[in-house]
């Protein structure tokens, strides 16, 4: 009798699952889904805020001396960066004037949508984050997601009505066409899945790539514009028996703590 009850339970559960999946693809579950997400999104936000605060506190108290040394380095870097910024602005103005002289067609401005990170994927096998903007706000699959003024952190892989899921660049399933800011402008493919680091593969062996070189998006991929910063090279693997060399890079931003991001509405 007990076994019959078990079999009945499994049968009813299986039937309910099939019916739910069917209703979902008909779109009948959307109001229920939106309502439930509206209840849980604030919890996700609080949890994400707590997580960021906890990591910041831990990083500070873990090693106070290193923290202050890094702070002093940042101060020194800031002054150098101010000078470079001024030079860049001058070059931008010159570039604009030259383009006008040559009657170049202006590149259309890309629309940017700000979003807040409300949490990570609850199903732990992927490195993805959830943002609070969905297809209603204009997000679509394959749109790039950045932080700051242009540091790429991932791509949108799922756009629901009110939320979107972003796959981070250190996820094993994401590949981005990239270029190295070196003399040869080496092209390659950046992929994740190496813990905190990211690897750039398919760099031609005859091109010189050194530690410290910056990696940006190459613009050869649809929907991802050229020039988004990905990271800096920290190690190079150039074996004679391999047809290509590989570079290990550290992302330019901490991918465990994104809080406010921007979606480039490129499509």
């Amino acid at each position: 009798m007990f076994r019959n009850l078990e079999k009945k339970t499994y049968f009813y559960l299986g039937t309910i699952f099939v019916v739910l999946i069917f209703f979902n693809y008909l779109g009948w579950l959307n109001p229920i889904k939106s309502g439930i997400r509206a209840i849980f999104v604030p919890i996700f936000v609080k949890s994400a805020q707590f997580s960021v605060g906890l990591k910041d506190g831990y990083a500070f108290f873990k090693d106070k001396e290193t923290f202050f040394d890094t702070y002093r380095e940042c101060e020194a870097d800031r002054q150098d960066k101010q000078l470079i910024e001024a030079q860049i602005k001058t070059l931008e103005n010159e570039n604009s004037e030259l383009r006008q002289l040559l009657n170049f067609k202006d590149q259309s401005d890309i629309l940017v949508l700000g979003a807040q990170v409300i949490g990570k994927n609850v199903e732990g096998a992927e490195k993805t984050i959830i943002i609070d903007k969905g297809s209603e706000a204009g997000t679509k699959i394959d749109q790039p997601v950045i932080v700051g003024n242009g540091i790429l952190i991932g791509k949108i892989i799922k756009a629901e009505k009110d939320i979107s899921i972003v796959r981070l660049i250190n996820d094993s399933q994401l590949k981005i066409a990239a270029t190295v800011l070196n003399h040869d402008h080496s092209l390659g493919v950046v992929e994740g899945g190496y813990g905190l680091s990211v690897k750039m593969n398919f760099i031609p062996r005859n091109e010189v790539v050194v530690i410290g070189d910056q990696i940006i998006t190459s613009g050869l991929e649809m929907n991802i514009p050229r020039g988004l910063l990905i990271g800096n090279i920290t190690a190079v693997e150039n074996e004679s028996y391999q047809p290509f060399q590989e570079a290990i890079l550290t992302p330019s931003t901490d991918l465990s703590k994104p809080y406010i991001v921007s979606v480039l509405l490129t499509n």
């Binding site: 739910l20 979902n24 949490g119 994927n121 609850v122 199903e123 899921i165």
Partner: peptide
């Protein structure tokens, strides 16, 4: 609830 916040197609996790 898991299906609402995951990137896999609906139904896979369930």
């Amino acid at each position: 609830l898991m299906e609402l916040f995951t990137s896999a197609p609906f139904g896979i996790n369930s």
